[in-house]
Design a protein around this nucleic acid. Sequence first.
RNA 1: GCCGUGGUAGCUCAGGUAGCAGAGCGCUUCUCUGAAAAAGAAGAGGUGGCCGGCGCACAUCCGGCCCACGGCA
Length: 291
Amino acid sequence: MKLLVILGPTASGKTSLSIKLAKRFKGEIISADSRQVYKGMDIGTGKVTKKEMQGIPHYLLDVASPKKRFDVAQFKSLAEKAIAKIVKRKRLPVIVGGTGFYIQTLIDNITIPEVKPDWKLRRKLEKKTQKALYSLLKARDPRRARTIDKNNPRRLIRALEIVLKTGKPIPPPSSESRYEAVILGVKKDQRQLKQLVEKRLTKRLKQGMIAEVKKLNESGVSFKRLEELGLEYKYIALYLQGIINKEEMIDKLQKKIEQYAKRQMTWFKRDKRIKWIKNEKQAIDICQKEL
RNA sequence: GCCGUGGUAGCUCAGGUAGCAGAGCGCUUCUCUGAAAAAGAAGAGGUGGCCGGCGCACAUCCGGCCCACGGCA
């Protein structure tokens, strides 16, 4: 089954390209963005507006409360449902987003062990040292222990969570894709991207991004949770609490967003299937040939 | 002009009894299997303001000069 994917670093212009392509190739859009799933997080995530959608149906936006944590597994299942629906309507599913992990899990059908996060257990394990976590894992699941990053407590805890809950070692990763994905990557050089980030940051502040974060907090999203959500939400939350001033907030944000874009590229670079495009025309050419 | 304080990595600064020059941030590269805007890893980068002296050896001690900041004139 054919499917179009549009990915790229933040601020690269995925949204407007996706709408153009969706219109042209009869597509409907599934957002693959780990933050745009949350209700009320609009300006800070650069969520498309109704007007910008130009009538193209969008899925996976506003499907979760920012008070709760959303994760890949939920994404995968919701996205698969959306794909099925779009295909039934004889339209082209267009996956658009910057969360590489979500995209890969979906298009390569990566199996995620069916063990739900157990926050109580996680908090308990968090008290242990990395070394203790590692030796515990080594005893229970030597195979996973060999490949895991010993220094990464979050990974160690997740691995242990699976082993302890199922009583069995973690099955080796497997993936068998059901989709034939045409993957377009929006390419921007670093200098250009920096400027785009700066411009967009100024625009978002003017649009009332600070008020948006304030409103979220007033509606019950704690500052701690906002900090967890990262970037705009984190640094504005710090500003609202008086921990940093406005200038520090802006400087820091610019840097952090640039770093984020780089991390995204590190993820994407590994996937040799991605066809990197510099403009709309190249995108259309590839779509015409391959869809 | 005098007195004081300082000049060490891109930035902010530790250290200093002479013995391989450090941290945080930033930068580069990378990892990723239910938190991914998350969580981690590796690496690059220095004429220690300049010149001279003493010493086996000086960022460190001595002399001079330059620069910055503050005070006094």
